[in-house]
């Protein structure tokens, strides 16, 4: 029996009917055509499907769409503001933090949450903070650099204001 759900996705309210078993990631990909969120595994390990639900990073393959009823959802497609890349998107480009691009949306969304909680992470904290995201291309080396780049960029204007 389909259930009607409403949520805000990337700032826009959407209402759709879904089967109870529809995973949030499939809802985004199939019903909203937001195919930037990827499925990389079926055991909740790889993190390719990471999005923000009510500001928290979650694995959208391990949440039912009905569970997100009433929530605010941000996917990779909603990260740029007014055509301006988010500092993390910019960081990944500047530091070559992506190769095949498949893990990238989930990696960036996880990094958004990571920097949100810890704006000045050490390399070790970044590495530990990414334990829920697999990348098979980069060896993580440049992903760490990319997040460091973004952290610096995000913190810079604050420092300028403070001084």
């Amino acid at each position: 029996m389909p259930t009607k759900i409403t949520m805000t996705v990337n700032g826009q309210s959407v209402t759709k009917e879904v089967e109870a078993r529809t995973l949030l990631v499939h809802f985004l990909r199939d019903n909203l055509q937001l195919t930037g969120t990827h499925v990389g595994c079926d055991t909740s390990n790889c993190g390719a499907c990471t999005i923000l639900v009510d500001g928290n990073a979650v694995k959208s393959c391990t949440m039912l769409a009905v569970q997100a009823d009433g929530s605010e959802v941000t996917t990779i497609e909603g990260l740029s503001q007014n055509g301006e890349m988010h500092p993390l998107q910019e960081g990944f480009r500047e530091e070559h933090g992506l190769q095949c691009g498949f893990c990238t949306p989930g990696m960036i969304m996880a990094a958004v949450a990571l920097l949100d909680r810890n704006p000045n992470p050490s390399e070790q904290e970044i590495r530990e903070g990414l334990e829920g995201n697999f990348c098979r291309c980069t060896g993580y080396h440049n992903i760490v650099r990319s997040i460091q780049y973004a952290a610096k960029k995000i913190n810079e204007p604050k420092k300028a204001v403070a001084s």
């Binding site: 930037g36 890349m85 691009g101 949306p105």
Partner: peptide, 21 residues
């Protein structure tokens, strides 16, 4: 040189086989 393919991947606009309907 920074990669020209990055923009689509960074914005969720890559087009992988399973994305095609």
């Amino acid at each position: 040189v920074k990669r020209v393919e990055d923009k689509r991947f960074l914005t969720g606009k890559g087009r992988y086989t399973d994305d095609i309907v």
